[in-house]
């Protein structure tokens, strides 16, 4: 019995010794992974104060250093490839604010990283087109070529991540890249178009329709701030069984609240379209002895 106790005590001591030796080493390895990642981020030009703030927020949210390393990895991977990474950092901040579970956040960030990388072979050749280059040089005062590329890659990545196919993106930028469009718009209009594209209600089922809508909006002289209203105008039109184009014009050109049918209703009421049917008869006709014109309104 005494021997058994001695063996037991020795085993406990062994386990404790192992814990004392290996756990700090493991923790140190984890810490160094995060430290190395942060060092790398710093070298790649990622704002150190932003990363530090993310680290503080991660601690506030009870996120472990390993999880923080996983969270930062997609941004660093994009920066290593000279690709826009700020979207990942912004999404991280958003995820912290919304208290998104760590693993869900990591999955979203990885998805965005992969989608942004997939956007590169779609966007880079398109940007070399003469019409696009001409538009870029025309708008260089307000937006650099690199800035435009980054913004377009970010938003194309978002679109791909939202389930828009690469073919759909390709045909969309093909439409946008036409000489007619390019001669009338600036880089912000393109970026805004790509941002709203996946959120138009028709994109999932009929992407050609969404493309047509955006392209005609740009041809119609709508600017990026007008494009902002397209998704809700279309949603409201669908909900009401109305023609989306009319709803969009009401919302944008007439600056009414998007989706408000008031303009149409007023017009219809005053034009006498409500009530249906032709007048009951001409003045003085036999079917209208009083000579009432009997218009079909009100």
């Amino acid at each position: 019995m005494k021997t058994t106790n001695s063996i037991y005590k020795l085993t406990i001591k062994g386990v404790l010794l192992s814990v004392m030796l290996f756990v700090p080493a493991f923790a140190s390895a984890q810490q160094s992974e995060l430290s190395m990642l942060m060092q790398k981020a710093d070298q790649l030009g990622i704002d150190k104060s932003y990363i530090t703030r993310l680290q503080e927020r991660a601690q506030e949210n009870g996120i472990s250093e390993q999880q923080l390393a996983d969270i930062l990895t997609p941004a660093v991977a994009l920066a290593e490839n000279d690709l826009p990474f700020d979207m990942i950092l912004e999404k991280t901040s958003e995820g912290f604010a919304k208290r998104v579970p760590e693993q869900a956040l990591i999955n979203v960030l990885r998805g965005l990283q992969e989608a942004t990388q997939k956007a590169v072979p779609l966007i880079d050749p398109w940007m070399k087109r003469a019409s696009v280059q001409e538009m870029i040089s025309r708008n260089q005062a307000s937006d650099s070529e690199q800035g435009f590329r980054n913004d377009l890659l970010k938003n194309t990545g978002r679109a791909l991540n939202q389930g828009v196919s690469e073919e759909s993106v390709l045909s969309f930028i093909e439409e946008l890249g036409s000489d007619e469009i390019m001669s009338n718009i600036n880089s912000r209009d393109i970026v805004a178009s790509m941002r709203i594209y996946p959120d138009l209600p028709t994109t999932a089922d009929n992407s050609a329709l969404s493309q047509q809508l955006v392209v005609r909006s740009l041809k119609g002289g709508f600017k990026s701030s007008d494009l902002e209203k397209l998704p809700s105008a279309m949603r409201m039109a669908q909900a009401r069984g109305q023609l989306p184009a009319g709803n969009i014009v009401n919302g944008i050109l007439e600056q009414l609240q998007v989706g408000s049918p008031a303009g149409d209703i007023l017009q219809n009421l005053f034009d006498g379209n409500i009530g249906g049917g032709p007048p009951s008869g001409l003045p003085g006709r036999p079917d209208n002895p009083a000579g009432r014109g009997g218009g079909n309104n009100g």
Binding site: E94, K98, L112, A192, K223, P231, S232, V258
Partner: peptide, 26 residues
């Protein structure tokens, strides 16, 4: 708690299963 936006507001998918409102500044 987060307030929801009415249908009049243009929103975009936030990637976390929710919607963010969009503001475009020219």
């Amino acid at each position: 708690g987060w307030l929801k936006f009415s249908d009049d507001v243009s929103t975009v998918d936030d990637g976390f299963g929710g919607k963010n409102a969009l503001k475009i500044v020219e």
